[in-house]
């Protein structure tokens, strides 16, 4: 199962067989998915995922390796087009939109295996996230001929990037190349870059992977800080159960692409089916 997920990651997003007709709904949730699912060839990688995430919630998505967690993220960010179902951000149907459009509408993400722009400096990485914001608009003409407005916008962007980096304690590293940062800081920079796109919903794919207990604790605080100060809603994938129970009040447990259980974190984690799925037997 794990290998199929890897393989699915490398192939091209499949076109939806029948065109999904986008229809907005009235929803009290920031993210709502309805029967979201995708099939690779004959393999049902994910099916019938119904997430309901409230505003300012930190929501967990857990499950054993190959359960389809990252596939759900890929569906929510438009990397894959779902074969069934739809998803809504504040009631707006975003199903079938292109990745950059979905990002503009307000979903940003980080990656399981870090995907920074390695040969760019830390501050430029964040600026890539910032530069598509309407407030930093600057026409191609102004940009090419380096008119005053271009410099004004660049200056504003740099200042904002510095502010964001400060939250993550990265402001002193801003002129280093991203690839030279230690692992924990690279993970943080990924979150900073995603945050720079000014999302309404932030998807974190195993943010604590490979971190030591101190770094993890620090990350817990940072994530809470982001939720409170950026008015953010966060959906995260994580294997560290302590991390999950410390942050998330609600979780969804996936196994073999289907929802095993969902709801209150403590109850879900103590569910015998969940324990069985993790430990086996």
């Amino acid at each position: 199962m794990a290998s199929t997920e890897k393989k699915a990651n490398t192939i091209n997003p499949q076109k939806t067989s029948k065109k999904h007709k986008r229809e907005d709904i009235v929803s009290e949730y920031v993210l709502e998915t309805r029967n979201l699912g995708i099939t690779f060839g004959g393999l049902k990688a994910v099916q019938d995922v119904n997430l309901k995430i409230k505003k300012n919630q930190i929501y967990g998505l857990i499950g054993p390796n190959g359960a389809g967690k990252t596939t759900v993220f890929n569906l929510l960010t438009g990397v894959y087009q779902p074969t069934t179902g739809a998803f809504y951000l504040n009631g707006k149907d975003l199903t079938g939109l292109r990745q950059d459009k979905i990002n503009h509408k307000g979903i940003a993400r980080t990656f399981q295996n870090i995907r920074l722009f390695n040969n760019m400096t830390v501050v430029r990485n964040v600026m890539v996230g910032l530069q598509n914001q309407p407030e930093y608009k600057c026409s191609l003409f102004e940009s090419i001929f380096l008119l005053p407005r271009h410099f004004k916008v660049e200056k504003k962007m740099r200042a904002r990037a510095k502010e964001i980096l400060k939250i993550f304690g990265l402001e002193d590293e801003r002129n280093n190349f991203a690839c030279n940062l230690p692992y924990g800081k690279q993970r943080k920079l990924e979150i900073a870059r995603a945050l720079a796109t000014n999302p309404k919903l932030l998807l974190l794919d195993e943010p604590a992977a490979g971190m030591n207990p101190n770094e993890t604790e620090d990350l817990v605080n940072t994530i809470k800080y982001i939720r409170d100060n950026f008015d953010m809603t966060i959906l995260l994938i994580e294997h560290d159960m302590k991390f999950v129970s410390g942050l998330c009040d609600e979780i969804t447990v996936l196994n073999f692409g289907t929802v095993l259980t969902e709801g209150n974190t403590k109850e879900a984690l103590n569910n015998p089916d969940v324990i069985k799925a993790y430990i086996g037997g």
């Binding site: 990002n103 890539v128 996230g129």
Partner: peptide, 28 residues
């Protein structure tokens, strides 16, 4: 100068580094 200074230049570098990640950061 174009590549180093402008937004499009920066987007170009980002796309050449990692097309998928750049797209998910809102670059067309």
């Amino acid at each position: 100068l174009f590549v180093k200074k402008t937004k499009i230049g920066r987007a170009m570098v980002a796309v050449s580094e990692d097309k998928g990640a750049a797209q998910l950061m809102g670059i067309n």
